[in-house]
Design a protein around this nucleic acid. Structure first.
Lengths: 253, 253
DNA sequence: CGCGTCGTTGAAGCCGCTCAATAGATGTGG
DNA sequence: CCACATCTATTGAGCGGCTTCAACGACGCG
């Protein structure tokens, strides 16, 4: 479990209502009264540095976490050391929902850069859900959304070729950054090539080559962890397989 | 939406308490009083025939479904006709949870054989959740479990070779059947090769060849849709990559 | 500056896909 | 009941995309 930092400017912000992530995060759609209920259980603003874990496989499940700043990766490892990155998380997003069933975390959440988060004790949170219908609804929605994300990732990994996968990854990242108020074309990757590769079910070399190929084709410019999208349309076309012939089996009826 | 059959023996069973799937399904862990609340909203026992849909992509989300008998596949199709099977569902399992967020079904649920199901209007169900803590908890758990399943599928598709994937599939099927009270070694596949292939991110030819290879190796006997597991241990070893050398990149730290 | 980590690039090989033909199963109608 | 059509599954041959193996380059940090 991460230790709280000595000085954390975020801790000055006292309420979810004041939080800039208000409309993205757990409190989304809650009225003032409901927010007050939520305030009672939230533990606010712990900080986290690159490489630190929010939780690890096997940890007891106690909290749902909301990321306030920074970014994280969720990853799963099996007995032989196969390591699959399941997703990347950005401010306003919720981590830990998959641990509810087994009451243990089955995957690990690791910080990709320095950031901060809020923690909601799950037992208290679910009690509040009983008295605040909007909060219950929001919890259901968040879990449902998580399922949808994973469904799309499954489609990407299971049915798309390497170019489509990376293009899909970039497009998705772009739109998520835009929602957060950042540029849709200037992307700062907080994850390593290795992590992108794992997420997409590819190797690091393939990802590297694809970045090069996209750059040579004039779709993007890449410099280390900085990506500039020059031709969003073309990238979207690749992402949905409208160009370069070779795909995996389609099985269309 | 499926039509209810003219005669359905299951409709004679009036309560979840009497249902043989009681301990697997939504009512799991509920006391008598809680069950009564649940009874008020459930719509029981519609029947469904092979090829019929419980819901399709784009359908308005109104119900959560519990499968009573038979089996279903959940699948997702993108714009170009890439069709990914996301999962197979058996009696006691819940379908439709991923539609809560968007209030629309983003994937389709199709019957693999004749069966029956119960429907829970989601708006009523979530109201009941507010007064029955155990039911709310169960909903959270079910959604969480679904996330866990998908995580494991992602690991399988993203990091494992073809043999490992099929072995994992068979092992998983075996243990689910066992939980349902069926044999763990005599497996009747209700899905076609094509559907297995799509689920595992492979082609139908590869799946067919793997079945042949497993049979020649004495691990199983396959005859059409009937599989007999002869060497569970060996299958588990393959499933976790303990044998046949070649795997995908492991990325172990 | 030297070292370690991360990323890029090249060459070669293999796994699983594609294409194609056959066999088996299922259903239909005469 | 068999002939025919259709769909599903099996099997083979060849190829190609991605991985593997290997070496080099680029950064960042002590």
């Amino acid at each position: 479990m991460a230790t709280s930092s000595i000085i954390d400017i975020h801790s000055l912000k006292r309420s979810c209502a004041d939080c800039s992530l208000h409309e993205l995060c757990l409190p989304r759609g809650l009225d003032r009264q409901a927010l007050e209920q939520l305030e009672k259980v939230v533990k606010r603003s712990y900080s986290l540095h690159k490489g630190e874990y929010l939780f690890r496989t096997g940890d007891e499940f106690k909290y749902i976490y909301a990321l306030r700043s920074g970014s994280m990766k969720l990853h799963l490892m099996d007995v032989q050391g196969n390591n699959q990155v399941l997703g990347f998380y950005f401010p306003g997003e919720i981590l830990g929902l998959d641990a509810i069933d087994k009451k243990k975390h089955l995957c690990s959440a690791e910080a990709l850069e320095t950031g901060s988060y809020c923690a909601f004790p799950f037992s208290s949170l679910s009690e509040v859900c009983l008295t605040v219908p909007d909060l219950q609804r929001q919890m259901f929605r968040l879990m449902s959304r998580e399922l949808t994300y994973e469904n799309e990732l499954l489609l990407t990994i299971g049915k798309k070729g390497a170019e489509e996968r990376l293009a899909t990854f970039l497009i998705t990242l772009s739109s998520r950054f835009q929602q957060l108020g950042y540029s849709a074309v200037e992307i700062k990757l907080s994850m390593a090539r290795q992590e992108i590769a794992s997420y997409l079910g590819l190797t690091i070399e393939t990802v590297s080559r694809l970045f090069g190929r996209f750059q040579r084709a004039g779709l993007i410019t890449v410099k280390r962890k900085h990506v500039h999208i020059k031709d969003m349309e073309a990238l979207k076309n690749i992402s949905s397989g409208c160009v370069g012939a070779h795909k995996q089996a389609k099985y269309s009826q």
